[in-house]
């Protein structure tokens, strides 16, 4: 039984069957990659996991509880964090504030009216935020406004914001999209460090095979809304079905 169990999920947009009978099981404390050509339904699947889309049928269970019908903030409070394709951060706030906000969300829940207390007196929260910033080596940038960070730093900041909540499942939507090779390698190193330091399950959607094969322990290949194979990285390379999905019909 995996921490995340997707069973028989279907999603249709008008005449397009975006997801057809998707089954997926992600084991706890593993890195699971979902790959597939453009339009395979990877992002649709991810959106179904975080409450942005509701599947037409099927079930999505996280740690024994259904996530379907819950709002994104409720799903986050269950222990699922998400990193976006383009980093979603609080661009007008400082780096430190960016990380403090998830700490408040973790401690106080989805809403708390703490309007009179001063943020300066939240010693624990500030310490927590600084610890995670030093983990992603951004501590010296903590007073910068987030919008002035480089793209790579924005990505690191977004990861720090997710990690500080100590999620049980981290979903990453193309974490290296549009990055230069050096940045990509840095991200891979960062994710490896994170994985080594704590118990965390990661589910990565990625185009870049270099990233996938550096990180993933299990790989699911999705094509035209349906999972083709689920295998270890060694067995995926050169798998005939995968070649077919990426390169079109098998050539004679």
């Amino acid at each position: 039984m995996g921490i995340l169990e997707v069973k028989g999920v279907n999603k249709r947009f008008g005449g397009l069957q975006a997801l057809g009978d998707v089954n997926l099981s992600v084991k706890e404390n593993t890195v699971h990659a979902i790959i597939g050509p453009n339009g395979a339904g990877k992002s649709t699947l991810l959106n179904c996991l975080v409450g942005k889309l509701i599947p037409d049928s099927g079930s999505v269970m996280f740690d024994g509880q259904s996530v379907l019908g819950r709002k994104p903030h409720e799903i986050n409070q269950m222990g699922i964090s998400r990193v976006f394709q383009t980093p979603e951060i609080f661009a007008d706030l400082t780096v430190l504030e960016n990380v403090m906000i998830p700490c408040f969300a973790k401690r106080d829940g989805a809403f708390r009216m703490h309007a009179i207390e001063s943020t300066r007196h939240e010693g624990d929260i500030i310490a927590q935020a600084k610890a995670i910033l030093s983990d992603v080596s951004m501590l010296e940038k903590s007073e910068m406004i987030a919008s002035s960070l480089s793209r790579g730093d924005k990505r690191r900041l977004e990861m720090a914001m997710c990690l500080v909540q100590e999620p049980r499942l981290l979903l990453l939507d193309e974490p290296t999209a549009g990055m230069a090779r050096a940045d990509t390698n840095n991200t891979i190193e960062l994710l490896k460090e994170i994985k080594a330091k704590r118990d965390i399950t990661m589910c990565i959607i990625e185009h870049d095979m270099h990233v996938v094969f550096s990180l993933a322990e299990r790989i699911t290949v999705l094509a035209q809304g349906t999972p083709l194979v689920e295998e270890t990285p060694e067995n995926i390379k050169g798998h005939p079905k995968v070649r077919e999905a990426y390169l079109g019909e098998a050539q004679v």
Binding site: K71, E88, D92, M100, A105, D108, G109, H114, A115
Partner: peptide, 21 residues
């Protein structure tokens, strides 16, 4: 206050706000 910080976060990025729980 933390409440004020949350309000500024809403102005800055409501998507991230919701996905932060």
């Amino acid at each position: 206050s933390p409440f004020g910080m949350m309000l500024r976060a809403i102005k800055s990025n409501q998507t991230r706000m919701n996905y932060t729980g």
